[in-house]
Design a protein around this nucleic acid. Structure first.
Lengths: 155, 155
DNA sequence: TTGCTCCTCACGTCACGTGAGGTGGC
DNA sequence: TTGCTCCTCACGTCACGTGAGGTGGC
């Protein structure tokens, strides 16, 4: 991280730093700013380069977390606008966070199910490979029974 | 499920059935077929409606599982082409499945981290709401430390 | 006949990604 | 001067979604 760290001065990050720290590509960071999901970032006075503060980095990290569970950008924008209202909106922030926790919990459940399904399929092909057709049939039936639970949750 | 189940006859599913059973919208099922990710599904002789067999349903379930971890359609197509080579490709299928298990494991780790982050943020705002600024600062610092691990994995 | 589901084909959309062409500081 | 990173703006792309207009069986 090439943050400028003068004693007593606040840390500043380039767009590349923020991309590395959050996992969001620079193009996405510019895009989010252009559509108002990220508030305008201050610029180097003559270069025009973006200079992210610690607070900006915090917000982008949070946005990356929201984006990772498939939240739409318009929802993200709403969330961020809410957040700008400061500590007075603590209750709303908590509701928002709990909803996000719910999303994450459901995503985790989905992944657990899918892993079970994949492991059954691995066992199935190993049985086929070993020529054990009785076992293979049994595993195929188990996988079929699991398939019904694998539905993708609708947004 | 409106599957046609005559004794001795194989079950047949409509596109709506398959959409309900796999969580993929009908438009996506048509799209996957049009680009060759799903092999051409047989049709009702005069209606032209798609009639999915049990085997088709199996394959679509598997595709839904792949799609859910962000696999590109071109990768999905490659995987399916591999799979069409039958039991002789058992070893390759196992490799493929293990790679998918790896993806799922990494996705699960990501979600675990994000949940920890969200819970810290919830605690933070509850501390703010309660006026406990010392505790809030402490939690903010913890969340900041966690942020570095939250990077989105690159494909 | 009226619904209902399904069909194709064309176009729209969402969330970015990718150059082209250019600037600014070591 | 040469790299290097960054900039904007326009256009491309990926993975679908959405009508428009039409067909087929209870």
């Amino acid at each position: 991280v090439d943050a400028v760290n003068l004693p007593g001065a606040a840390a500043v990050y380039s767009i590349k730093d923020v991309a590395a720290l959050t996992g969001l590509p620079a193009s996405t960071l510019r895009y989010y700013e252009s559509i108002g999901v990220i508030e305008p970032v201050s610029r180097g006075e003559s270069s025009g380069h973006r200079r992210y503060t610690e607070e900006d980095l915090d917000q982008v990290t949070w946005l990356a977390c929201l984006a990772a569970t498939g939240m739409s950008v318009s929802d993200m924008r709403e969330y961020v606008t809410n957040g700008r209202r400061g500590p007075a909106a603590a209750r709303q922030q908590i509701d928002l966070l709990m909803a996000q926790e719910e999303r994450l919990a459901r995503a985790a459940d989905q992944i657990t199910l899918r892993r079970r399904y994949v492991r059954l399929k691995i066992d199935y092909w190993q049985a086929i490979d070993a020529g054990d057709h009785a076992q293979a049939d049994l595993l195929a039936r188990e996988a079929g029974a699991l398939a019904g639970d694998l539905k993708r949750p609708k947004p």
